[in-house]
Amino acid sequence: MTQPAGVDGDRELTVDQLAAVVGVTVRNVRAYAARGLLPPPRLVGRTGFYGREHVARLRLVREMLAEGYSLNMIERTLTAAPEAAGSATLALHRALLAPWLPPEPEETTAAELAARAGVPEDDRLVDGLVALGLVERLDDGRLRVMDPALLTAGLQVVELGVPPAALIEAQLTVAEHVREIAQTYVRMFVETGWQTLREGGATPEQLERAQTTVARLQPAAAQALLAVFRREMAAAVEVAVDEELRKLGEG
């Protein structure tokens, strides 16, 4: 089998040919495959053969690495992508998903976590964070913090004197409401911008427009949500303060 001239040709490639076409080492190809970044090849005996979808994924991995993405972030970006997706589909998938991914996960221990919160070490605290999806338990007993920024915000609330258990319970309720808000924005986009994309046949210009829309949707949606939250928080605080002051007056 000779190496095809076109990267996206229909010919199947051996692992050596795949590495040569994309411009990476065979060792890297095998390492990426071991992490699940590439779908399994078609096996003929002990030889694996790779197609266009493997070339597309490998090129995307190389590009994201060159832009400074970690392998963990790339893995999270590609997890939900169709295995047989071509270059254009993967590029769109990345553009639509990447802006919404949380920061890089961090690893810690239950003791370190308790020390940061200023509370005694307690398995129930970790269990609550696991229930939130904020923390994962690792096989070696350590913890992986899935969203360090959210954890930092929570610890700041704990420093104000709010018990961790109360914060976790409140956050479970908040997460449920935010999930509904996110679904509302996604439905809005699918029923408007995405519908236009489907009807237009997904031309390169429309794909680029969709990517731009999603990139602008994140800050716009966050700003709108924050504005509503501030308004509702002010109203709720006013009612609560008036009620508590009334109780003090009656006492």
Rank of each mutant, 00 (worst) to 15 (best):
A234V: 13
A182W: 05
A236C: 10
T14G: 14
E159Y: 05
F49R: 13
Q218A: 14
D127V: 09
P4C: 05
D123C: 04
P99Y: 08
T192W: 08
R209Y: 04
L132P: 02
A236E: 13
A115Y: 06
E180W: 10
G68P: 03
R230N: 09
P4F: 03
R209W: 08
V24Q: 07
A115G: 04
A175Y: 08
A98D: 10
P4Q: 03
L172P: 02
L97Y: 04
D127M: 05
M188F: 09
G201K: 11
Q206W: 08
D147T: 01
H54S: 01
Q183D: 15
A220C: 05
R187F: 02
A224Y: 08
L172T: 10
V162P: 06
E136V: 05
R46D: 03
L134G: 00
I74K: 01
Q195K: 13
L18Y: 02
E199N: 10
Y32C: 07
E12I: 08
E104C: 03
E75Y: 02
T212N: 12
E243C: 06
L207P: 01
V241C: 13
N28R: 11
W194N: 09
I74Y: 01
T47C: 08
A182P: 03
G86L: 07
N28G: 07
M188I: 04
Q3E: 15
W100M: 06
G133T: 00
F49G: 06
F189A: 14
D123G: 01
E136F: 02
